[in-house]
């Protein structure tokens, strides 16, 4: 697993249970806004159906180049924003291979399952699945 993502997971896992949601909120607040060009055209933005809020993502990937990830999640959906920020901090700038080999269940060891329902956690799985699919398409194009 990519070091940056591993560090994020450890940060959650090492926090006491009562500080994990505040940490997720910090992540939510740190999610960078969409770049102006994408925000204006909304080109390539894909809705994440697994999330229970209106979350969109875009992936900029090409063979041999670092993958850029962009997320758009409303302020009223802080949990989904937090998930998007986890992926952004852990995987933005990764190589295509690092993304494609990220375990699908990477989030299981974050210790959020007692605090967030399984259905919500699947939103995070859905985001990663979509990122991987976009990267795989770019690699085979």
């Amino acid at each position: 697993m990519r070091d940056a993502l591993h560090e994020v997971i450890e940060e959650f896992a090492d926090s006491p249970k009562e500080l994990r949601l505040p940490l997720l909120l910090e992540f939510a607040n740190s999610l960078p806004p969409l770049p102006d060009a994408i925000a204006a055209s909304r080109d390539g933005l894909e809705p994440v159906e697994e999330c229970q809020a209106a979350i969109f993502l875009a992936v900029d990937a090409a063979p041999g180049k670092p993958v850029r990830l962009y997320f758009d999640a409303p302020l009223e959906a802080p949990t989904s924003r937090g998930f998007a920020a986890v992926l952004h901090k852990g995987l933005d700038g990764a190589t295509p291979e690092e993304i494609l080999t990220t375990p699908n269940d990477f989030y299981m060891s974050m210790g959020l399952d007692e605090l967030v329902t399984p259905l919500r956690m699947r939103g995070l799985a859905g985001m990663l699945a979509r990122v991987k699919r976009r990267v795989a398409q770019a690699m085979s194009a």
Binding site: L21, L24, L25, A53, P78, T79, S80, R120
Partner: peptide, 9 residues
Amino acid sequence: DEDVLLYDT
């Protein structure tokens, strides 16, 4: 809430 972080915002 459905969203577990919303209260804290």
